[in-house]
Amino acid sequence: MLVSIISLSSIGAASAIILYFIAQKFKVIEDPRIDEVNEMLPGANCGGCGFAGCRNFAEAIVKATDLSDLNCPVGGNAVMTDIANMLGKAAGTKEPQVAVVRCNGSCENAPKKVQYEGAASCAFAHALSSGDSGCPDGCLGLGDCVASCKFDAMYMDPVTCLPVIIEENCVACGACVKACPRNIIELRNVGKKSRRIYVSCMNTEKGGVARKNCSVACIGCFKCEKECAFDAITIKNNLAYIDYEKCKLCRKCAPVCPTNAIHEINFPPRKEKTEKTAKITETV
């Protein structure tokens, strides 16, 4: 009995001493502020900041002298200001953003001409052909973006075959933007009262060709550009683009679009021409 007590305690003591020295030898001196910053971050490890994970981002924050380029899309400006105050640095502010799907090629608007069969991967379908509808820039509907979303902010609409973004959940981490092989998803500023106007099309083909495949394609007709009083709309490669920094949300462009390619989100319904806009907000 006594022997076993002694021998066990001595083994324990010896191990403790060895462990102590090993811990000393391999001790890593780390800025304690990294842990503190890490604690303040949301801990989603989404990679939206451009770093591999929250801890890497915390390291970068502590190291950096200027925080204006560093932003955590999940925590937003509030978290960044807190961190900056704690570290005594100046925080940069960034407009909150949200993901926007820039394609309205639903099964109805862009009818299927061929039938894709194979792995449920947009990346593969993109390499194989221009897709079921024939539009080379349109949504393939296989949900690579939904699979990439870590915040339950997306789902595939079974009726339209298009991804839908749940705004309340979207933190603009950009995972879906990277996942989409056709760059259909864009991060845009949330805007006043969450109101946004954008061109829901990515097709750069000539108007006639684009229309053949999809009834709501942007045909690059310049009508919206002429209508815009703020130079917010540019047309390049037969495709209009609305700059969200310049757009004043005056809503003048949407009614002139002959193909209903310009979408308005979260606006109150228009008084006149209710039929047309109702259709648009419905699809949104």
Partner: peptide, 13 residues
């Protein structure tokens, strides 16, 4: 199983 589909995606990436 569509093994080659996934292999092609992988090769590409």
């Amino acid at each position: 199983r569509p093994l080659l589909d996934y292999l092609r995606v992988g090769k590409n990436k």
